[in-house]
Amino acid sequence: MLPNFAYVRARTVEEALEHLGGEDTRVHAGGTDLLGCLRDRVFAADKVVSLRDVEGLTGIRRAADGGLVLGGLTTLAEVSRSSEVRGLYPGLAQAASAVASPQLRNQGTLAGNLCQRPRCWYFRGEFHCAKKGGAQCYAVGGQNRYHAVLGGGPCYIVHPSDTAPMLLALDAAVRIVGRAGERAIKLAEFFVLPEVELARENVLAPGEIVTEILLPPAPGLYSSYRKVRERGAWDFALASVALALRSIGGRVTQASVVLGGVAPAPWRAEAVERAIVGTTVDEKTARDAAAAAVEGAEPLEWNAYKLPLIRGIVEESLRRFHDYQPS
């Protein structure tokens, strides 16, 4: 049973912001992560502010610069079906269609997917863990096969989003509104590691909402998203890799490689990017670059399997890019 709360349906962003002042006031977009968190008592709610009737928060439109603007409340199903997304940023369509199940994609929103809380079973369970203000991370020395191998400490969650690594690779920005005003920031500045902010996964202040996701123009852009999960469907990533590459004559001029499911935030694999820029990503380059993907990794007792997994999907994704090149 969910805790008892008041329910209000805002009609405008301004009205929603007025309601979102209280400590235990929660914003409801698709609601799929909100209801899960409330049922698991991850946080409390005394008021839920629904955005379903707020106009202008859904839909996908061309930006003046040729990029795309995606309303924060656009569902994942709409993102994955959009002909503009598929045409310009196929990796984003792949990532959106890899989330959860058809029903959850019909309900879950793109902004919600970026802002969802982690799935760590200690965080979701009845443990007063470090992230919830407790003294320790129970994943250290506990059951940690789904936890972070990169960027962990003092908390070892992995960021669960599929669209986040892809949007970061695409150099997307988010528009954030709050009572104090409005700002647009790059996703690179949006997610934070637990060593910086233990209690939250991004820089959103209480009462702020993500209204838009902004994608820069995509001329000559190759993008792909590869996710590995334990089941063939409806599961979070054990590891994933998002690629966004530009090339001239098969030679990479610009590379963004971001890992998902392996770190507390989408994890930019800069060593891989350095290894492939200026090359045609032949077989040896792909293999060497993939090996660099796990540089600095510090697996816990039960999750070292993620290292060869990461190397495998990075190499596979780079080989796919190479094969895709028109000869």
Partner: peptide
């Protein structure tokens, strides 16, 4: 017309 989980949907939604 679109499939959803009724358990993940608040009645007022």
């Amino acid at each position: 017309g679109v499939p959803l989980y009724a358990c993940m949907t608040l009645a007022p939604e």
